[in-house]
Nucleic acid binder design. Structure first.
Ligand code: SF4
Ligand code: SF4
Lengths: 157, 157
DNA sequence: CTTGACTCGGATAACTCTTGTCCGAATAGA
DNA sequence: TCTATTCGGACAAGAGTTATCCGAGTCAAG
């Protein structure tokens, strides 16, 4: 039960991109967070495939968010990086072994799979309730103003 | 984002153990579900370490549940097999890079970590609401009675 | 229009964790 | 006492994730 570590980086990048406004290159984002720029590029690729960011090629290029910050949920980012398939995957054990249940009797989903599915839905629903804009508002409230201003200027330079 | 596949087997074993009453060996459980007995033994070990089942050694030994079925939640089994640490692990990115926030200003948890923690709690809460007894009741209602009786007899033999 | 340099994108290795297997120590019964 | 049977932890194999590289494409300047 381990989520891809890139999710954390991707979320940080989304926050930074929303505050920047202008396109930001992957190298700058990597330097800002002090992480491997090669690997961060991979995460940004995934975000691009999911349609959350748009990449501009060539000089003065970089990444920009495609939607407003309050239109991007944390769940969007998580599913873009970590995939959409649920954590629990049933292998239909009840159809195997000496006491196998014939497939034609397996019309109703088993309670185990239902409980897992319900929990997974609750998890996703909780993540869907938070948007990037919420994160930004909270960050602006809790981080020292001088650091915030410095980061903004550093992104533009 | 992938849960250990052994969770499914462990849950099935808990259901079977609750219906059996008498100690059941790991080999029988593996044959019933048609899975690797060596690997299933590992899962049962984890259940034993977590205190959910008690192992009886020697002849006519096997595994027995330590509590009543309605006192064991699905969350207990998941945490026993898959571990208790949350899926999201923060690496304190904000304390790195050129715009690092000094550690003494990081007293309040960041909103990203809070959102993830909240979702994780919702997920666990949903799993905690379902007990093994609930699963058994649902299984007894949905599976054909002849198969259920056969399985019980097969476990005792 | 040419040039140039800079950008992302997908294909490619190293590594960690999960999965799967084995044999030895301990036990209950005969 | 002895034996057959059980679980327990130590030991490899495989998959998945992490990390990296260089080439195709693009924009801006001269
Ligand atoms: S009984 Fe439920 S959990 Fe088990 S294999 Fe069938 S659907 Fe999956
Ligand atoms: S800002 Fe939040 S998510 Fe990022 S490293 Fe700090 S605590 Fe973790």
């Amino acid at each position: 039960m381990k989520m891809s570590g890139g999710v954390e980086w991707a979320l940080h990048c989304c926050v930074a991109l929303s505050e920047a406004g202008a396109p930001v290159t992957a190298a700058k984002l990597a330097e800002l967070h002090d992480v491997s720029q090669s690997y961060l590029a991979k995460q940004l690729q995934l975000l691009s495939r999911a349609g959350l960011v748009r990449s501009t090629l060539g000089q003065s290029g970089g990444y920009v968010l495609t939607r407003a910050a309050n239109e991007i949920t944390v769940l969007d980012v998580v599913e873009a990086i970590d995939g959409v398939q649920p954590a629990f995957r049933c292998t239909e054990v009840r159809q195997r072994g000496p006491m196998a249940v014939p497939p034609e009797r397996c019309d109703t989903p088993c309670p185990i799979a239902r409980a897992m599915d319900s929990a997974d839905r609750a998890w996703r629903e909780s993540l869907r309730a938070v948007t990037i804009a919420d994160l930004i508002a909270d960050v602006n409230r809790t981080t020292p103003p001088e650091i915030l201003a410095g980061a903004r200027e550093w992104l533009g330079a």
